[in-house]
Write a protein that binds this DNA or RNA. Structure first.
Lengths: 130, 130
DNA sequence: GTTCATGCAAATCGTTTGCACAATG
DNA sequence: CATTGTGCAAACGATTTGCATGAAC
């Protein structure tokens, strides 16, 4: 009843391609890569397999939040808390630590103009609901 | 030739609604709110006006990255650098500062299980291209 | 009156899903 | 053979866009 996972050449290749890149590709990019070996591959298969690989923990989906655009009338930089249960986003009033961008510069040479910290957890409302 | 921006009741109301909430609403949510006053409002108008307000700096669009899902075969937590020019995403090897979640807890009471820092700037490749 | 903003509907685009067939075990 | 994975195409859902009409100036 657990539902088995069978081997699939397509899935193996998808994971391999993903392991061999340092970029953070989209499904389409992976599709184009893998299609060189399996020209009949379909995008749907890529999405399905990525979903399985994420579920199995071999792959991370970069969590850029929900599918929806979200807006706010608060323009100054600030951090966010994202509830993993209800998907809500809350502003945080933590002070901005400007030394972080300096640390980034000295460690990597990259010049960032700003940064945002995203904390992930369970918000108060959701932790009350058992 | 600059193209003028005229006053519009709909846009005023959209900004007002956005200013009065502490949440980070979607376009649809705003649409439903504003429609109580202007029942003929269309979603397209909401999107158009949000775009204008963002361009004018009155509103921020929460930058959750591109429309596309992005994947990576790197499962351990790490930070990211996002290029504002070419949209590329790079992994960073900065150490994870676990004291941040403790600071969050003592400042707000919120318990985060993890966090991610996103630095925004111009990547090396793009800063070379003039 | 000229130009910009609106409402409506159709188009777009990334992602998901139903289905018949092929591959796995 | 029983079940899972695939390709294909259609469906889906958020966002964008073309167009005729209405509002701003």
């Amino acid at each position: 009843m657990a539902g088995q996972t069978r081997k699939s050449k397509q899935r193996d290749r998808i994971l391999e391609v993903l392991k061999q890149t340092r970029s953070h590709p989209t499904a389409k990019w992976i599709y184009d890569k893998v299609r060189k070996l399996y020209p009949d591959l379909s995008l749907g298969t890529v999405y399905r397999n990525l979903g399985m690989l994420v579920k199995q923990g071999f792959v991370s989906k970069l969590d850029f939040g929900s599918l929806y655009d979200r807006f706010e009338a608060r323009t100054l930089p600030h951090h966010h808390f994202l509830c993993e249960q209800c998907g809500s986003v809350s502003d945080l009033d933590l002070p901005i630590d400007h030394s972080l961008t300096k640390k980034l510069k000295s460690a990597t040479g990259l010049k960032a103009s700003r940064h945002e910290i995203r904390f992930y957890g369970v918000c108060e409302k959701c932790s009350v609901k058992k």
